[in-house]
């Protein structure tokens, strides 16, 4: 499924050229927000509602 000859460095360069820093930052922030909510949010209501998920996924931060 890949015939290319480019390297990992090329891919990083292409990605850097395709996306401006603000877009990349926004994407990273959204992913971080989702990850934080699922894994680390300690607010009691959120925490308890995700209780089964955290046990089931083997995530210890609950």
């Amino acid at each position: 499924m890949s015939t290319n000859t480019d390297t990992v460095a090329d891919r990083f360069a292409t990605a850097g050229a395709q996306f401006d820093p603000l877009t990349a930052l926004t994407a990273v922030a959204l992913v971080a927000a989702l990850g934080f909510t699922l894994l680390f949010m300690q607010d009691p209501l959120v925490h308890e509602a995700l209780h089964d998920f955290r046990h089931g996924a083997g995530i210890i931060c609950h």
Partner: peptide, 14 residues
């Protein structure tokens, strides 16, 4: 029930 629903949704988002 809420816990089960939110946890299932959490699984999807995961």
């Amino acid at each position: 029930t809420m816990t089960a629903v939110v946890s299932a949704g959490g699984g999807v988002l995961w």
